[in-house]
């Protein structure tokens, strides 16, 4: 039957695709029948058996469903759906049914499509605009245009621009006005705020929440993450400056770079997080210089030199 369909159908791509689905279904059927012999067919071993035929009922992946709603089993297409299997087999046996399918297919092909698409709907670009597509040609006067025309007729001498634009030319453009500072806003979500910062090659995100003063960096406490006192101190600086020791539970994620870079990235991230929590911390932190971004990176190596600044030793001849 499959061959017959293929022979009769015209060579249209999309039609072939629709038929291919049926072929897959049928070929799958034959494969299933061959492989459904289980060695351990006795009832006692059947529960423990892991072959295809025994686990078929439990295997989720054997059912191909096109809808997310699993309860609607009529929509399922696949070998394991018995309703669909019956349909396929019945169609194969009954010639009248298969003819019906063919007729439907032919009707779809030869009958006129339900909705034509006009040629004008396609956007075809041409150098000269055709008159009926020209915007200016088809443009009609709006109410405002008529009002303008009336106004010009009645007050011929009036300067319309001045009436509409009351400001002077002096005030219109201020090239030397100072830049407006960025508007600072708090950003607290579920009682927590976070800050992000970079230093050298390292980055850090610090989130703060009101608590008993626990600091964890990448899941480790402060004393275990940093061993040098200076690094520990630099992390705590924003808390000291804002006088909020033992008030925050700080959770930090830091990555990249070295220890010092991370420590200083965490310092600024923490300061930013404090500012986002409450703007009142901002002035003191700014005075202490903790909100300053240190944009210095490793200086590049130059050609003709050993390093960024270091020169080759001078050799005479």
């Amino acid at each position: 039957m499959i061959n017959r369909i293929l022979l009769n159908t015209p060579s249209k791509g999309y039609l072939k695709r629709s038929i291919d689905t049926t072929i897959i279904g049928l070929s799958g059927l034959s494969l299933q029948n061959n492989s459904s012999r289980c060695i351990s067919s006795s009832s006692s071993n059947k529960q423990n058996c892991r072959c295809l035929s025994c686990t078929k009922s439990n295997n989720i992946y054997s059912i191909r469903s096109y809808s997310t709603n699993n309860n609607n089993k009529e929509n399922e297409i696949g070998i394991n759906n018995e309703a669909f299997k019956k349909k396929l087999v019945d169609n194969y046996k009954d010639e009248t049914n298969s003819r019906k399918i063919l007729e439907n297919l032919n009707q779809e092909l030869h009958s006129a499509p339900k909705s034509y698409k006009k040629a004008d709907d396609y956007q075809v670009r041409s150098p000269i605009v055709s008159p009926h597509e020209d915007e200016e040609f088809n443009q009609r006067f709006s109410a405002a245009d008529y009002a303008n025309i009336l106004h010009e007729k009645e007050f011929a001498d009036s300067n319309r621009e001045e009436e509409l634009l009351p400001f002077d030319d002096v005030n219109r453009f201020k090239p030397f006005a100072p830049l407006r500072p960025r508007i600072q806003q708090t950003q607290v979500i579920d009682g927590a705020s976070s800050g992000y910062s970079k230093r050298k090659r390292s980055r850090a995100v610090a989130t703060i929440k009101e608590g008993a003063g626990e600091i964890s960096i990448n899941g480790r406490p402060l004393n275990e993450y940093f061993h040098a006192i200076s690094y520990k101190d630099s992390v705590l600086q924003p808390l000291v400056v804002s006088e909020t020791l033992m008030k925050w539970n700080v959770d930090v994620r830091a990555w990249g770079g070295g220890m010092k870079g991370q420590a200083e990235a965490i310092r600024r991230a923490l300061a930013m997080a404090l500012c986002k929590y409450d703007l009142a911390y901002r002035p003191s932190l700014k005075l202490a210089g903790l909100l300053k971004n240190d944009a210095r990176k490793v200086e590049r190596k130059k050609p003709g030199q050993l390093k960024a600044r270091k020169k080759f030793p001078l050799v005479k001849r």
């Binding site: 003063g213 626990e214 600091i215 406490p221 004393n223 101190d233 808390l239 020791l245």
Partner: peptide, 11 residues
């Protein structure tokens, strides 16, 4: 005292 406590993280 609070500063030292946080530096040592209570250890």
């Amino acid at each position: 005292i609070q500063y030292l406590y946080q530096m040592a993280s209570g250890n």
